[in-house]
């Protein structure tokens, strides 16, 4: 199993990166600030891995110069289509959220390493807000690998829980909202699926706000379960040339774009519950 992991991790570096012009097929508003873009490529899509990302050029925004990174949300090789989940946080993402069917989108992909995949195991996926973006592709691939998957989605309120029903085809879905408007009340870390003293999971995969990922990582660490987190740092190039998106790891500064975006949380400096100062799991 270990060698299988190493083998898989070594593949992304060899995967050829492409620049592809996509055509937008549909743009669906999921809530007040999230859009789902479905896009089609005229050329066959290259193989991608769950957890990898795309750098999207933003045309038509005078203040946006750099590309924007997004997780590969869904990919369908048979129809050469891909979905990206866009959260509007500024001018660049707002411009993308305003795209219409027929518009062009210039995309670099696949970038980054991707999640190491378990096989025939019970696993937990935890997504906070738009952090569920890479978990669709991941949940789908894990199902193909015969894993039994629990998916825990967290948000402030019911409207922040995106596409929960659509994920049920791949996983048993659990929900936590801070205001209790959907699922259990509270943070994901207080949800009953994480309450057990001996969690049944072989791996925990996590994507969402920094605080959420650290808290989930602490729970996993306590029980000796590997926790794979997908980081989101400010990026320029996306291909390891500019060294802007670094994260501090046990091996020094490493690029989130090429050494990540997926890291085992214990590789990250300050993430271990033993080294972190002033952090409480009960918060």
């Amino acid at each position: 199993m270990r060698t299988f992991f190493l083998l898989l991790i070594s593949i992304p570096g060899l995967m050829k990166k492409h620049i592809i012009d996509f055509k937008i097929l549909t743009n669906t508003a999921l809530n007040h600030n999230h859009n789902l873009l479905e896009m089609e490529s005229a050329v066959p899509l290259p193989e991608m891995l769950p957890g990898q990302f795309a750098e999207v050029r933003v045309d038509g925004s005078e203040t946006t110069y750099l590309r924007r990174p997004f997780s590969i949300h869904r990919v369908d090789y048979s129809s050469n289509t891909m979905h990206l989940l866009i959260k509007s946080v500024g001018k660049g993402t707002e411009t993308l959220a305003g795209l219409k069917p027929g518009d062009k989108l210039n995309v670099m992909l696949p970038l980054g390493n991707g999640f190491p995949l378990e096989e025939n195991k019970k696993v937990l996926l935890v997504g906070g807000g738009c952090g569920i973006a890479p978990l669709w592709f991941l949940a789908k691939e894990l199902k193909l690998k015969n894993c039994s998957t629990d998916l825990l989605i967290g948000g402030r309120s019911a409207r922040d829980i995106l596409m929960a029903d659509d994920y049920r085809q791949f996983a048993t879905v659990h929900i936590a909202t801070e205001d209790g408007s959907l699922g259990e009340t509270g943070m994901v870390t207080g949800h009953s699926v994480l309450k057990s003293e001996s969690l049944p999971y072989r791996s925990i995969y996590c994507c969402g706000p920094d605080g959420m990922m650290r808290a989930v990582s602490h729970i996993a660490e306590k029980q000796g379960i590997p926790c794979l987190v997908s980081l989101e740092n400010t990026m320029a190039c996306g291909i390891g040339a500019c060294l802007c998106c670094v994260v501090d790891t046990n091996q020094g500064h490493r690029c989130v774009c090429t050494d990540g975006p997926v890291f085992n949380s214990l590789e990250l400096k300050g993430w271990s519950a033993e080294t972190e100062v002033g952090c409480s799991l009960d918060k």
């Binding site: 203040t63 990026m235 998106c245 670094v246 500064h253």
Partner: peptide
């Protein structure tokens, strides 16, 4: 050289600021 701490980059109108620090 490890370079400077994150954040090292800020997008600006038609450009960007960087503070990589010779990593």
């Amino acid at each position: 050289r490890e370079g400077n701490a994150y954040p090292r980059m800020a997008e600006t109108p038609m450009g960007m600021l960087n503070a990589v620090g010779l990593q």
